[in-house]
Design a protein around this nucleic acid. Sequence first.
RNA 1: GCGAGAGUGGCGGAACUGGCAGACGCGCUGGACUUAGGAUCCAGUGGGGCAACCCGUAGGGGUUCAACUCCCCUCUCUCGCACCA
Length: 815
Amino acid sequence: MYPFKEIESKWQKEWDKIGLYKTPENPENKYYLLEMFAYPSGDIHIGHFRNYSIGDLVWRYKRMQGYDILHPFGWDAFGLPAEQAAIKHNMRPSEWTMSNISMARETLKKLGISYDWDREIITCLPDYYKWTQWLFLKLYEHGLVYRDYAYVNWCPSCKTVLANEQVIDGACWRCYSVVSRRKLEQWFIRITAYAERLLNDIDKIKEWPDNIRTMQRNWIGRSYGSEFLFQIEGKDLRLPVFTTRPDTIFGVTFVVIAPDHDLIDEIIKLSPNANDVSLYVERALLMSERERTFTNRPKTGIRTGLYVINPLSGERVELWVGDYVLASYGTGVVMGVPAHDQRDFEFAKRMGLNIKVVVAPSAGEFDTLSMEHAFEEPGIMVNSGEFSGLSSEEGGKRVTEYASAKGFGGFKVSYKLRDWLISRQRFWGAPIPMIHCERCGIVPVPEKELPVLLPPDDNVDFIPKGRSPLADIPKFINTICPRCGGNAHRDPDTMDTFMCSSWYHLRYLDPKNTNEPFSKENAQKWMPIDLYIGGAEHATGHLIYFRFITKFLYDIGYLPFDEPAVKLFNHGMVLDKNGEVMSKSKGNVVSPVNLMETIGVDASRVSIFFFAPPEREILWSEESVKGATRFLDRVYRVFVIHSPGTKGHSQLKDAEKPILKLLHRTIRKVKDDIENMRFNTAIARLMEFLNEYEKEEKSLSDGFRAEVSRCFAKLLAPFAPHLAEEIWQRVGDGRSIFLSRFVEYDPELAKPEKITIPVQINGKVRYRVEIETDCSKDEAISSAQENEILKKYVKDKKIKNIIWVPNRLINFVVE
RNA sequence: GCGAGAGUGGCGGAACUGGCAGACGCGCUGGACUUAGGAUCCAGUGGGGCAACCCGUAGGGGUUCAACUCCCCUCUCUCGCACCA
């Protein structure tokens, strides 16, 4: 194997010395290249390596095209695992986090990833989270932060709040007790105020993958419909009901409210069978929302004994509580129209409720009793008072207008997107900069007092006691009200780490700024991100929050753009050879360090690029690295050991023409493949070129070989940078290859003179014919017609049609 | 369950916009070189017949001169589902 160790360490030192990765201060041709930052849960694994190698490849390619690039890296350092590690290993969260960061940073440096380390950020350090808190205050200032009650998972035996991840089949992951729900007052961010823009602007981010754009659309989930108020009979309480089918309002035979609805306690109080309802609600809340909404699960429910009045028909119908209704969507109350909604139909059948047809396929045609399914399509309204006879569309509109005029309803747009709950009852996060004062109520911490420092994490008891550990640290929790100067206490919760990661890309612009999160000037210089690389698992989490915060900062004048990233690229996951996710607990983590030490950084990169297209998931296996090491060994032999050195150009010999033409075709294909993120086929092209070149090598002049070496080194440079630099040292201009310009191809040379195309008879390939490139249809057909096989198939039959696809194929359609 | 993807030789994958299915590589088989080979080089390699041909892209149907590619149905797997980041 070629001496990769010496080569790699030599060039890494050299690049460091010349400051290759430093960000230019005043970019003329800017390119902001960003990979999602890392959660430091241990050392870099092969999945990270894949992600960052993709970024590094793009950096090298773009650099050689003359771009001024910002390519930073950082750490998403707050979060649950640090606290878990603290409990498990009796370590401080900061110690665990920072030592993981040092280890991973060293690995990234050894892997030679082109980051400008001067711009590194760490979200758990005060100079960063100060500005996360600042962001929270700005959101508060603009009315986008509020407090409300929300359910959390609660383990009664550990007495702690659990993340969804910590709830396994409804039980606590540590003690296996049944997890219940507990209502807590928490902080929310009103992301729903941006729902419409987040949805509409998906049209602006055309260079994001379609699947992510579709997932975001569905996640935001806009639906147009109507809202109607159903009064509880005899009470002064009106329940708003959202529906997308106002045309079926006369078919309501029951109304169902969610067990987690805000008004549920009141309903229980009013209910004649309060005990049973209360018990039902308690049981329903043990299930996750996801379980509750499984459509193949039998829907359950309970009568409240209360009645509500249909505002349109005046009919009184039963009010039920049902677990298939979610408080978080629509109004948390649904009208049951069993004749025209399949879920309602099943519910009514199970519970013995009436089914009333109010929409018929066409006027007069309907059958009330023999229905086996709901009729969900639009049609003609029937049994609907004055609205009978109208089409669903027209009637729905009229019904809603009528309700609006009478004050018991109206048009309504509903979103699936919910407000963002950011309170976490945990230690290891950015403290929420709010103060609770007995006299003044809730008071934000003044901006000049930021950061609200997290107290030292030694001697903190992380074993949960049902509230945030910060609540039990007097030095932290007790404070003075900034408004009245009286005794007050700080908010004990910390922020969701998605808050930290929603703006980190902006801190890189200006990571040392002590006066503001980043300067507008730098934002103007570098934003938006030109290419953002990361996993698709963030589709409806980080990638929505990140867009939202960008829009918010645009609105308050901090940013000149309201979308953060022009282009998004999702790489595939790296799984082990059994198709399982790599994790420490499974012990199947593949380290790029071992790989790098046995075959080198360049061969490791080439293996992972060659394995599959970068967006595809891969099942990692060591056997596949052989192709890459053999390839680079041959490259080393042909272009380093046999290097002709820098020699002048010479007259082109006849034997050199085909290689020259192949070289230009290779340049064209490799460039095209890099630009379309098809790195596996780009490497295949280089292999093919090498195969041909090696056969002819001996008959070529030194001057020609030097020219080929220069081109090949540049084509190789994005994939195997160290080896490419080693080749370049022998044939180049004395500077780094990454300061040179990438190769261009000559379209004339890239075109082959003759091509062989298939000839089909009735769509089946029967023989082949060689034609001149770009020849005419007649020329092609005449050369194809002189053929025994064709004559055999045609015989006395007629040629009906001849299909000619230029430079592709000929198809004779016979008989 | 809902939403988003994926399924091609023994294996990873290739096939531009509907136009030669299997590029490139791994593995395997045979050979060369060699004291040796888990090194290197050469040749072969989807299946059947071993010839003309036929069959093959998860399964079933359809559109077309032509389908891995487009449409319908079914199956399997992966990711996300709001407190993992």
